[in-house]
Computed example of a mutant assay.
Amino acid sequence: MTPTDRRGALRAGAAAALAGAVTAACGTDRRPADPPSAAAPAEPAAAPLPRRFPGRPTEIDHGPRDRARVALTFHGQGDPAVARALLTAAERAGARLTVLAVGDWLDRYPDLARRILDGGHDLGNHTQRHVDINAMTEAQAYAEINACAQRLRRLTGSIGTWFRPSRAPHALPHVQRAAARAGYPHVLGYEVDSLDFTSPGAPAVVRNVTGPIRNGSVVSLHLGYADTVAALPALLADLDRRGLRAVTTTELLT
C-alpha cells in the first residue's frame, strides 16, 4: 500500500467510526493486585512524583516549533457516547489526544478514565466541578483541583501529568500555586481555540483550528459536542496533508 493509499484508508476509517453506531464501553473494572502474602504488612504505595518538563514555564501553551507535532486537547465532559465515538475515530486515524477530565464527570462515567488511557491518550485534571476556578481563593482552588486528582488516582493509580483551569484560558498565580501543591508543576494552556463549545458548525470548527495551527500548537477542543465529532475527520485529514502529527501533550513536550 502506498503512503497515499494508507492515508486515505485512515481517513475513511475515521469517518466510518463517526457515522456508525457507538459501541458501548465494556466497563470492565481493573482491580488492584492482591497484597503480598508476606508476614509483614505491605507498605503503602508511594505517590508518583510530579512530571516536570525542564526549561518549560509553569503554564505551557505550546510545544517545540521545530517538530511537526501538535496536541489536540479536550475538555472532558459531556455525552459519554459522543466521547467514545470521538476517541475511536481518532485512534483509527492514528491520532492520540489529551483529555482533561472533570471530576464529577468521571464520577458518573468511571469507565471512561480507563477507556482514555487504554486508547493511548493522556488523561489529566480539569477540576472537580468545572467552576470558575480563578474566582476562588487559593485554598478553595486547591480543594477543587485535589478532589479531581484523587478521583483520577482512585480510577487509574495516578493523578495524571496535566491540569487545566476551568472556565478560563489561563490560571492566575494563586491557582498555579494550588495546582503545584496538588501535584501539577505545569498548567496546560493552549494557543489555538476551536470555539467548538459555541456550536458554530463543523466547517467552522475545522477553519478555527487549521487556520492558525502550526508546529507545536496546543489546541483547545471539547468532548460531547456534535460539531466537534463531525469536524474530526476533516481536521485530521488536513493535519495529514500538512505533515502534522497529532500526539499527546506528553509526547509533544518529551
Rank of each mutant, 00 (worst) to 15 (best):
A15D: 03
R51P: 00
R65D: 15
G27V: 04
P54W: 12
P35I: 00
P54F: 09
P41Y: 06
A40W: 08
D29K: 15
A33G: 13
R31H: 12
G20P: 00
H62E: 15
E43M: 14
P36M: 07
P54Y: 08
P57E: 12
T23Y: 00
R67E: 08
A16R: 14
P64W: 03
R31F: 11
P35T: 01
S37F: 02
H62V: 04
P41N: 07
T23L: 10
R51T: 15
A15T: 10
S37G: 08
A38P: 00
A42K: 09
T28W: 11
P57T: 12
P57S: 10
A38N: 09
D66R: 05
P36H: 10
H62R: 15
D66A: 05
P44C: 11
A24N: 05
R67W: 01
D34K: 00
P50M: 08
L18F: 01
R31I: 10
R65S: 15
A25H: 13
A14H: 03
A38E: 13
T58N: 03
D34M: 03
T28Q: 14
A38W: 11
R30H: 14
T23C: 01
T58H: 09
E59W: 06
P64G: 01
A39I: 06
G63A: 03
A21T: 07
P64K: 02
P35E: 03
P50R: 04
A25F: 04
A21P: 03
P35W: 00
A19Q: 07
R30N: 09
P50C: 04
A25P: 03
G63N: 03
A46F: 05
P50E: 06
P32N: 12
P48V: 09
L49T: 14
E59G: 06
S37P: 07
L49Q: 14
A25E: 14
L49D: 12
P54D: 10
A39N: 05
A46C: 06
F53E: 07
A42T: 13
A17P: 00
P32G: 09
A42L: 13
A25C: 13
A38C: 10
R31T: 14
E43T: 10
D61L: 07
A14P: 00
R30L: 15
T23I: 08
C26T: 14
R67M: 02
E59N: 05
A46P: 03
P57R: 13
R56F: 06
H62P: 01
I60D: 07
E43W: 05
L18H: 03
P41S: 06
A16T: 07
G27A: 07
A19C: 00
T28C: 14
D34C: 01
C26H: 12
T58P: 02
P41T: 06
A14K: 04
C26P: 04
R67P: 04
T23D: 08
P41G: 03
P48K: 12
R56A: 13
R56C: 05
A19D: 06
T58Y: 04
E59V: 09
I60Q: 09
P54E: 10
A21K: 03
P32H: 08
R67C: 06
G63R: 02
